[in-house]
Design a protein around this nucleic acid. Structure first.
Lengths: 189, 189
DNA sequence: ACATTTAGATGACATTTGTCATTTAAAAGG
DNA sequence: CCTTTTAAATGACAAATGTCATCTAAATGT
């Protein structure tokens, strides 16, 4: 509904024309490759392909379409990944549609537009977890048992327990469930 | 952003005038009591007061303002509660804004508008958990330990364990983490 | 070449979690 | 009034989880 409403509103603007609306990342990618729009306004959490995946693919394909991420989530993890994909904007859904239109114009002029919340927030607490720890915690978050994880990663169950203990300590929480919440909230897994 | 965009779009309609926009339930309630609108379009999950709470209060105050719930969540629990509060509509955010405008007109004519998904109730898998079980699982999902939960609910830790065992059985999963995922996914907690 | 760090394993241990059978008292339903 | 249900407690037990100290071998740094 937000997509439709924004589509209509932006189309009302003299200098903006909405040429397509996609309902997921895959569709967005197709449209971009077919229609070569100047700008693509994209959410992150979408079915089939996330907005970040689309941005990354476009970057490797050397697309000239300027990507503006428009999402609810100010997660540092998302933001950082978007920066790596060299998006032209990362805005939050709590602004007004007028501000959005103005940001689109600025991006067309070559500027980059980032929600101020993110720039301050990007002095962020960085992820204290190692790659292995993240891997383990991700599996734990999926409800896997120590045994399942150990055989998936070819480690002993004792090692898995050590990792969990380490993770719980690092995140300064009291059990795996809090560890999962905290890590997900901070975008660390 | 959706609120602002919808506000603008609906205000474009000849026969619709947007007289206020509230950013939470409490504010909505104030506006309704001050301005006596014909219709109030309201989300459910809002800060301070939820849309359902507002609808319930308005019902007891015998307000004449027709409430239309507009939300992302097709949770049977929400829907049922909205029906009890005698709202005039319950629509999902995946329709278009044109359809929404049409629904508003229908409601003004005295009709009631409910998203077909809800009436057909295809997602009608109903919540197998009792109130107590939900309460326990919600706390577990917050990372609380058995001891904390037992003292919060004035139950013994053994009873908490019994509940968790029961919950895990009912949801047909293998541990508390899967139970949390499943219950959250289905909107049961 | 040698010291240091690192990933992983192990074992011992306490605590928490999950399972079950049984009990009690109150509530509900005849 | 007497069953039947229900919410909660208890105890016993196995399994999983969390904590630690220690050990090994490989990778790194200098």
């Amino acid at each position: 509904m937000l997509r439709g409403a924004l589509g209509s509103l932006l189309d009302f603007e003299e200098d903006i024309e909405v040429i397509a609306q996609a309902k997921n990342g895959e569709e967005a990618l197709h449209f971009i490759q077919m229609l070569h729009p100047d700008v693509c306004l994209m959410d992150i959490e979408m079915p089939i392909k996330s907005g970040l995946e689309v941005a990354e693919e476009l970057k490797t394909h050397l697309s000239t379409c300027k990507i503006i991420i428009l999402t609810t989530f100010a997660r540092p993890g998302y933001f950082e990944r978007a920066l790596k994909a060299e998006v032209h904007g990362y805005l939050l859904k709590d602004g007004s549609s007028d501000e959005l239109a103005q940001s689109i114009r600025n991006v067309m002029k070559g500027k980059r537009e980032f929600a101020p919340e993110l720039i301050f927030g990007s002095m962020k607490e960085d992820n204290p977890l190692t790659e292995r720890e993240r891997e383990v915690l991700r599996l734990v978050a999926d409800g896997k048992t120590a045994k399942e994880i150990s055989s998936a990663l070819f480690l002993s169950t004792g090692t898995i327990r050590n990792y969990m203990s380490e993770i719980i300590g690092k995140l300064n929480v009291k059990n795996r469930i809090e560890a999962i919440s905290k890590a997900e909230e901070k975008g660390w897994i």
